[in-house]
Design a protein around this nucleic acid. Sequence first.
DNA 1: GATGAATGAGCGTTCATTCAT
DNA 2: AATGAATGAACGCTCATTCAT
Lengths: 225, 225, 225, 225
Amino acid sequence: MNSILSKVVFEVKEQTFLKDPQTSDLGNRILETGIDLINEIGFDAFTFRKLAKEINSVEASIYRYFESKHKLLLYLTTWHWSFTEYRLEFALANVPSAKERLTRAIKLLTSEIEEDFHGVDIDVVKLSNIVIIESSKAYLTKDVDQENEEGIFIGYKQLVKRVGQIVLEINPEFKYPNMLISTVIEGAHNQRFFAEHLPRLTNVVKGEDAITEFYLKMVFKTISK
Amino acid sequence: MNSILSKVVFEVKEQTFLKDPQTSDLGNRILETGIDLINEIGFDAFTFRKLAKEINSVEASIYRYFESKHKLLLYLTTWHWSFTEYRLEFALANVPSAKERLTRAIKLLTSEIEEDFHGVDIDVVKLSNIVIIESSKAYLTKDVDQENEEGIFIGYKQLVKRVGQIVLEINPEFKYPNMLISTVIEGAHNQRFFAEHLPRLTNVVKGEDAITEFYLKMVFKTISK
Amino acid sequence: MNSILSKVVFEVKEQTFLKDPQTSDLGNRILETGIDLINEIGFDAFTFRKLAKEINSVEASIYRYFESKHKLLLYLTTWHWSFTEYRLEFALANVPSAKERLTRAIKLLTSEIEEDFHGVDIDVVKLSNIVIIESSKAYLTKDVDQENEEGIFIGYKQLVKRVGQIVLEINPEFKYPNMLISTVIEGAHNQRFFAEHLPRLTNVVKGEDAITEFYLKMVFKTISK
Amino acid sequence: MNSILSKVVFEVKEQTFLKDPQTSDLGNRILETGIDLINEIGFDAFTFRKLAKEINSVEASIYRYFESKHKLLLYLTTWHWSFTEYRLEFALANVPSAKERLTRAIKLLTSEIEEDFHGVDIDVVKLSNIVIIESSKAYLTKDVDQENEEGIFIGYKQLVKRVGQIVLEINPEFKYPNMLISTVIEGAHNQRFFAEHLPRLTNVVKGEDAITEFYLKMVFKTISK
DNA sequence: GATGAATGAGCGTTCATTCAT
DNA sequence: AATGAATGAACGCTCATTCAT
């Protein structure tokens, strides 16, 4: 699994790092401990200084890999989207029915990751939490347009497009496939956050898989003729 | 209009300010120029120092009104939700049909504000842009839980609940009214941002009112039996 | 003397400071201790951090007064030129003979300051050393042109022009009065430095007033018809 | 020409480098690109990191040649003085008249270099600009005395002495030959800089060779009995 | 001999905040 | 009530330098 991963996972990220963190021990510690720390204290409070202390190194060393903490966040989110697309590929492979494929895709996009992915050093569960809470901060910036030009969000767009195309297979006349899918992805993030922190904004009861159920129903009803 | 506004609009915000900014000239300048400045440079780059310079005052004076820039953002977003609820009240008053009320509600929540609201000093259009881009940063924080306890998000929750109840009028068995409505509200924000900056994540063509059309259809199909 | 000083001395410097250091206790400590410290360790090694430590304050406080250490140096040099022009005015007042005035001007520009100037908090002797060693660094920069536009070097230019005009009184056909005077001023700086550190570049014997003697002779011979 | 150059030019510099940069390809790239870069961004903004990037190498490699950027500047200036002395030797060879020799020397010291020197990889015009703007920073340091002891400024001193001796040939009683010549050299640097950036300090009109004219006259008048 | 990786130290800057007036 | 002055703390960043290969 590892070799395929390596092949699939590392796509668009060249713009986000100065030196590929996956190629050295220090780089990997930056990623692993970085994910832990962002999870723990939140991205706003996260600084390279604190991370450096945590990995018994210094800020200057981290700057060899990432230009800024914002770029590190971009790296993590693009990694996450590449990884998600890779998982999607596997989940949909050899499934002929478009409806079944869309079902699987929505499930994958709206459920929590639980499995352990061998061959990946990165803690995908924690990373997924970061994506839920912090990823929107990665694009809600004055720099979006420039970063978009640099192709940093390609992974996300590809994913949306790909699932959107399944929608079109089912209903070729549906006008807003991308809008629907990005609503589902961002919505699932929000609902998961609301469920934990602002429960009156959602109707999720802990333990149940309400989010997935809701979005599945929503998608299929919305695209029905 | 003004008197009613004053009555309706200022609800939950006591937790967000130290001294009500609407009661003094300086306070109002803080709000007005604050909105301008956040719009211009983004909330991340926004500081009390810059705001103080802009209004020819000093940081210390702003601190009389708001404990932090984060609290100012909370003030602005709660103001926005109160204001939205007030507009909703007017839009739904004396409309007997639940479907018509839901339609009006969704339209109001997903369209851009354009009208000029007399009697309100605050530039509601600019404020609405801030809400789109920055409001999620107001709750995607390590302090959500505490701020939630303090009742800061009550306005938002009320709004969601109120529209959710219209959904239940139409389909009393629908399990996820709040989830649906908060998905619509947050989704509309996202799509409006995507339309401008990451168009491949949406299917919005500029000029058309695709967002409203999409969410109207989505809501009614989703809640249909 | 003080009152006249205050009037004469503070001219072009507004561009060099954020808040006039002469108007507060802390500001004056910045100037006095700043001069001491630059003298001691040299401008290159001088930092706001070290200065802050020395005056038992913090960098942030110094930044209220000066944008950068470079601006502080500009402040000090412009102060020095204003002060020199003021001294010149006194030295030349009521002296009818142009030759005598030129002689006095050259002496003033090429000799070491020794007197104590009452009513001035600034240690003019130490400041003069700084000007000798560091002032050229104030203009030998990529920012000269911009700073020149801002009028920062006006004091120096005025001084050169004023003495140049005495030259023209004596020999109206002399083509290069400013060139001559700026050569004298910069030359005197250099020779004083050489005398102390690179004696083989000069012919100064310590104790003698060779520098003044040389430049006096040089000037008068050069402008003679 | 090259072979003589090689013999004459490389004199005192042993103290300034760790490994002679003229003996390797990388070393020569350091010199050439270093000169370019210092010219472009100024010595203050110049760093080994930037230089390394420019020559597609790394900082560590540059450190093999030069202990610090300051030493590199010393290398360049001593090279320039050796080169100037070499040019002087040629210009004065077989000229019996002392007055003529002094004239030629002053001209050489105060005019801009324009000719292309074949056999020298170093861009002498750019180097000359660096010397004008930055060379004073090479000695206006707390380390002058030590560096002087190490003989780093010998080239400059020799040059001054040599031309000073022509002065003495003409007027054996003139007391300040070195002072005069170093005033001319430094003065010519200053005036060239002033002409471009602070024209009101000089009387140079672009295109004319005023600087040389002025210093020629100044020297001969000053040393006349 | 040249390089890649890493680091220690410190700089310049800004922020949020407090205190005295 | 508003302001002016000052500060503590930390951030982001870069530099010069070293070490192992």
